[in-house]
Amino acid sequence: MNWPAIERVESKRVVLDPLTVQHAPEMLPVLADPSIYEFIGGTPPTLEQLHRLYGVQSLGHSDDNAQWWLNWVVCLRRPRRAVGYMQATVERRAGVLEANIAWVISPAFQGRGLATEATASMIVWLTASGVDRYVAYIHPDHAASAAIARKQGLRPTSVVEDGEVRWQNE
């Protein structure tokens, strides 16, 4: 499938900038807080690791073109500052385009509704791009992410993968 190019997405307080390798230095401090990894696993990345990861993620699609990879850096509008990231992996499933979505906001900026606003903006853009279904995998103890998913119209299902509950809008 020929996927459209990722675009910049703007909302009232945040801008979603399409991810590039050049974002690695400004994202390093955003991803440095170990508490980010409490529910998603992993550890804070090095600059070299971010360069490699962003090089792959910014390609925009899998090698076989079956998946559309969308990655944005979440930035405050004023002052312009990176505060997190948004991700969507889109593929055709059962005749519909399904986006597996995820979000991370630096703990220093949590509790302000930024993840909710950024996620809503991403979903509006994805819907305009033809996406029909949204899913997110959320650790059952991650109340903040569950609240964000619920605000986007997602509901928990009985499906559990790798200890995370599948949420979806259908």
Rank of each mutant, 00 (worst) to 15 (best):
M1R: 14
M1L: 15
E7A: 13
V9I: 11
V14A: 01
P18I: 02
L19F: 01
V21K: 05
V21R: 07
E26H: 06
M27N: 02
L28D: 00
V30H: 01
D33Q: 04
F39T: 08
Q49V: 08
Q49A: 13
Q49M: 09
L50K: 00
R52N: 15
R52E: 15
L53A: 13
Y54A: 06
Y54W: 07
Y54G: 03
L59V: 15
G60S: 05
D63F: 09
D64G: 05
N65A: 11
L70E: 10
L70P: 07
W72Y: 06
C75H: 13
R78G: 09
Q87E: 11
E91V: 14
V96H: 13
E98F: 09
E98C: 11
N100G: 10
I101C: 08
I101Y: 06
W103G: 07
V104I: 14
I105E: 02
P107I: 03
P107S: 05
A108M: 13
Q110S: 05
G111K: 05
L114I: 07
L114P: 00
A115G: 01
A120L: 10
V124Y: 10
L126A: 03
L126N: 01
S129C: 12
V131M: 02
Y134A: 09
V135H: 10
A136V: 04
A136S: 06
D141N: 14
H142V: 07
A147C: 08
I148M: 06
K151W: 08
L154M: 06
R155W: 12
T157Q: 03
V159M: 12
G163K: 02
E164I: 12
N169E: 07
E170P: 13
